[in-house]
Amino acid sequence: MMTESKEIKLIDEEGRRVDGRKPDELRPIRIEAGVLEKSDGSAYIEVGRTKIFAAVFGPREVHPKHLELPDRAVLNCRYHMASFSVDERKPLGMTRREIELSKVLREALETVVFLEEFPRTMIDVFVEVIQADGGTRTAGITAASLALADAGIPMSDLIAATAVGKVAGTLVLDINDIEDKYGEADMPVAMTPRRNSIVLLQLNGRMTSEELKKALEMASQGIKKIYQLQIEALKKRYSVVSLEE
């Protein structure tokens, strides 16, 4: 891994990354809400070459019945990567990674959804990765929270997420697939931007406490930008031009 990292040169002499970005620069992001007709709420996100759809169904009756909760709704999240989303064909079923990420997504989303408004029901959240180029869990959370808002589910805030990585000893924002594979650390962060609370924080690799603080600050700045794009996407979908009397 280390030898490959030297060969690839993740940061050049000018401090630019493999795709020409500065360390604190996000990839180009495109967010749309209400892209799927059949679902109750949906969203699409493109972060660089990562492409993800999120769809929400419900609240609906719980099947099987023993899963239902008497005081709140069950949030059922499914993170799935399409077979064609990665370089080598991914088998169709849910892998261990996908099952874990479904849980991670659910736990992050549960913090903002008012589940107690819909007892004995289930809200389905489907996150389908169409093309993966790093940062799929963070982009998935961003899209899923937008899809929930689009479905009319009451929420205390939207969730925006991004990852901070450490490549060639430098902290970089919104890492892509190469930086994730050959870098030294990867830290996905999801936050509720208004309340400024962290709803997801994972760290794969090593960082010093100073680096961790700086990484959180970088993530927070990136998340604020993503949040603005989320708001724009929702307002674009629902803004109605009316004739002034």
Partner: peptide, 29 residues
């Protein structure tokens, strides 16, 4: 022509001294 105002979840509307929180709103700490 006038664009209707759209609010998103978590967007502050006012403070508790000005208005009571009605349907579709919540008061924060």
């Amino acid at each position: 022509m006038k664009r209707e105002e759209v609010v998103v979840p978590g967007e502050p509307l006012c403070i508790i001294e000005e208005f009571f929180p009605g349907k579709g709103t919540k008061a924060s700490n």
